[in-house]
Lab assay of single mutants.
Amino acid sequence: KKTSWTEEEDRIIYQAHKRLGNRWAEIAKLLPGRTDNAIKNHWNSTMRRKVEQEGYLQESSK
């Protein structure tokens, strides 16, 4: 079943993607209940745009 993505999950994906790049299977290990494919789709459909537009979460990672 599809549940919506939480801010916490987005944060984990964002940090992991910065470190690992497009290694979705590795990132998926950090998110129980999410598949690598689901994460990749979420990144491509939602997060990548956010990151590019806003420099997503930069201000809170100090």
Rank of each mutant, 00 (worst) to 15 (best):
I12E: 03
Y14E: 09
K50R: 12
K62D: 08
N41H: 15
N44I: 14
A25E: 14
Y56G: 12
W24R: 01
D10P: 01
S45G: 12
K1P: 04
S60K: 09
M47Y: 03
A25D: 08
N22D: 10
E26I: 00
T3Y: 10
E9Q: 04
S4P: 10
E54N: 12
W43Q: 00
T35F: 01
V51L: 10
E7N: 03
R11L: 10
Q58A: 14
N44W: 01
G55K: 09
Q53S: 12
N44K: 15
W5M: 06
E7A: 10
Y56H: 09
G21V: 03
Q58F: 05
W5I: 04
S60R: 09
V51K: 08
H42P: 01
W24M: 01
K29C: 06
G21Q: 02
T46P: 06
A28I: 00
G55C: 14
W43E: 02
E9A: 02
L30T: 04
P32Y: 02
I39L: 04
Q58I: 08
Q53P: 07
Y56M: 13
L31M: 05
E59D: 08
A25Y: 08
H42S: 00
M47P: 04
K40V: 08
I39A: 02
I39D: 00
R34V: 07
A28N: 02
Y14N: 05
A38K: 06
N44Y: 08
W24T: 02
A25W: 06
I39T: 06
L30Y: 02
E52G: 09
R48K: 15
L30R: 05
K29N: 06
Y14L: 13
T35H: 09
E8R: 13
K40A: 12
L57R: 12
G55Y: 06
M47C: 05
E8Y: 04
L30K: 10
E52P: 14
Q58H: 13
I39C: 10
L57W: 08
K62A: 15
E59I: 08
G21P: 07
G33H: 15
A25T: 09
E26P: 00
I27Y: 09
I13P: 00
D10G: 03
E59Q: 11
R11G: 06
W24G: 03
E26M: 03
G21L: 02
D10A: 06
M47A: 04
V51S: 10
D10L: 06
L57A: 12
Y14C: 11
W24F: 03
K2F: 05
K29F: 02
K2A: 07
Q58R: 14
G55A: 10
T35E: 13
M47S: 05
N44V: 13
E54F: 06
A38L: 10
S45A: 11
A25F: 10
H42C: 01
A38M: 11
M47V: 13
T46R: 08
T46W: 10
E26W: 01
E26F: 02
S61Y: 10
P32A: 04
K29P: 04
Y14R: 10
A28T: 01
L31C: 14
K29Y: 05
E8V: 07
T46E: 14
I13Q: 01
K40Q: 15
W5L: 04
R49E: 13
V51A: 11
A25K: 09
P32C: 06
T35V: 04
T6H: 03
E9P: 01
E54R: 10
A25L: 07
G55R: 10
R11D: 06
K2C: 10
D10Y: 04
E8P: 03
S60T: 14
W43N: 03
D10R: 03
L57F: 08
T6V: 03
H42D: 00
Q53H: 06
I12H: 02
W43F: 12
S61R: 09
L31F: 03
T46K: 10
E59S: 10
N37H: 12
E59M: 11
L57Y: 08
A25H: 15
I13N: 02
W5K: 02
G55V: 10
K62E: 11
V51F: 10
P32G: 03
E59F: 03
I27L: 04
I13A: 03
H42A: 01
L31E: 02
K40D: 03
A38F: 03
K1R: 06
L30C: 06
N41P: 00
E54S: 12
K29E: 13
N37V: 14
I39S: 01
A38G: 06
P32K: 10
T6G: 05
E8C: 07
R49T: 14
T6S: 13
G55N: 15
A28V: 04
K2W: 07
E52H: 04
P32Q: 06
